[in-house]
């Protein structure tokens, strides 16, 4: 009975939502407001305004950089949330500062897998760097590069058996790297204030200034994202 009611309620809500959506402009309609108002302005002026040939980056890191700053902090908050919920609740016993070692994986990864991953590691890292560097011109950027780099760090941690007690990135450095995203935005805020007269503005002088700011943001987002992914993995490994 209860299931029937739930299904009924869902069907009604779904029908109302679909009916409402039916009135939206057709996807891909060139005359739709999404294509004629703000987007049209950005397509027309984005490259010139921001110096980035990738308009997605122009929106993400210039026009709507403040939102991206918020998103980066949301990603950091996700890490903080996992830490605050999963970090051991009991204090370590006196005399013992290190937490008990997390259990080793039940099945050791095969030496072939370990070898291949270590062999591929420099290439994956290079690819991450390329995605980051080219984010300004091609599809890509800090978020994507961060995920690639983070996945690499997780893979390496798995095949090398590195857990919380012996992480790939030393814990003190990891704390700073995890803050890299918000920190890069803080720097960009101050640079914008000094160079463009507005928080998060792109400096007009020198000519390479705005490229440098965009690259700094990409770098912060990428490194921070990778460090956070590794942190999430390490914290959840024991559970």
């Amino acid at each position: 009975m209860r299931r029937l009611l739930t299904a009924l309620a869902l069907a009604i809500v779904g029908a109302v939502m679909l009916a409402g959506l039916a009135g939206l402009p057709r996807p891909g309609d060139p005359a739709a407001p999404v294509h004629t108002h703000v987007a049209a302005h950005i397509v027309a002026h984005g490259v010139e305004d921001t110096g980035s040939r990738n308009l997605v980056t122009a929106v993400l890191l210039a026009y709507r950089a403040y939102d991206t700053f918020g998103e980066v902090v949301v990603i950091f908050a996700a890490l903080a949330a996992v830490m605050v919920v999963l970090a051991p609740a009991a204090a370590p016993p006196p005399g013992k500062t290190a937490p008990p070692p997390s259990p080793a994986p039940a099945v050791a990864p095969s030496p072939v897998v370990g070898f291949v991953i270590r062999l591929l590691a420099p290439f994956i890292a290079a690819f991450a760097a390329l995605v980051l560097w080219h984010g300004e011109a091609l599809p890509g950027g800090g978020f994507q590069a961060g995920v690639i780099l983070g996945a690499l760090l997780v893979l390496l941690s798995v095949v090398m058996g590195r857990g919380l007690e012996q992480p790939l990135v030393p814990a003190a450095a990891a704390r700073w790297l995890q803050a890299a995203g918000p920190l890069a935005f803080a720097a960009a805020m101050l640079i914008g204030l000094a160079g463009a007269g507005a928080v998060l503005g792109l400096p007009a002088e020198p000519a390479w200034g705005r490229h440098a700011v965009l690259l700094l943001l990409e770098l912060g987002i990428g490194l921070g994202g990778a460090a956070i992914i590794l942190g999430l993995y390490l914290q959840m490994r024991g559970h």
Binding site: Y66, F69, G70, V73, F76, A77, A80, M83, A171, A172, R175, W176, Q178, A179, G181, P182, L183, F185, A186, M189, L193, A198, V199, L200
Partner: peptide, 25 residues
């Protein structure tokens, strides 16, 4: 007038830095 964006940015950036600052102390 620049204080307006910084009002939210100050606690947010400080929040990200806090675990690093508090790591040793």
């Amino acid at each position: 007038e620049h204080l307006l964006p910084l009002a939210a940015a100050l606690p947010l950036v400080a929040a990200a830095l806090l675990p690093a600052v508090a790591w040793r102390r």
